[in-house]
């Protein structure tokens, strides 16, 4: 048996949970393999260590207190019929479905509103700004003035004898 496989089963072996054939194979291997034996002894120690804690002492008033609580619960507990319980359970998917439909409606409505708002915004911007504003040399800018001056000077020079 390969050590790795055996180590995985050591805990079950120690707990007496393996069949007789596997158990005897492991017992034989443990006699020969010091590494597996070390692991086995470690597990034994761990088991003893875990079991060291003592159980709680019995509570002699447990049943009488439980009976008292049951009497109280009987008085307090509202009588909820199975039909109501099922109705309450059914409400969960119904609420989720309503939420989904409402979400889809809200989403569609908002998208339409946003796209119409965007159209309006474009129209307003078109009315305020000439397309020329976004050209390379906008009209009325310093560059435009300089260029036109330049043209005028060149024209003037061309006309001069």
């Amino acid at each position: 048996m390969i050590c790795k496989n055996l180590k995985n089963r050591l805990s079950a072996y120690l707990d007496g949970e393996l069949d007789a054939r596997t158990s005897s194979q492991i017992a034989l291997h443990l006699e020969e393999c010091s590494s597996c034996k070390f692991e086995f002894e470690r597990l034994q120690k761990l088991n003893m260590f875990l079991e060291a804690e003592e159980p709680l002492p019995a509570d002699p008033y447990f049943l009488s207190r439980l009976r008292a609580r049951l009497r109280n619960e009987d008085r307090k507990m509202p009588v909820v019929s199975n039909a109501w319980r099922w109705a309450a359970r059914a409400l969960v998917p119904v609420t989720i479905a309503v939420g989904l439909v409402f979400g889809i409606f809200l989403g569609t409505h908002l998208t339409e509103k946003l796209s119409s708002d965007a159209d309006t915004a474009f129209k307003i911007s078109d009315s305020y700004f000439d397309e020329d504003v976004f050209s390379a040399i906008p009209q009325g800018s310093l560059t435009a003035e300089y260029t036109s001056l330049n043209h005028w000077e060149q024209n003037l020079e061309g006309k001069m004898p």
Partner: peptide
């Protein structure tokens, strides 16, 4: 269960 106990240990 064996595997859970093994890993736990």
């Amino acid at each position: 269960v064996e595997s859970r106990l093994h890993r736990a240990k």
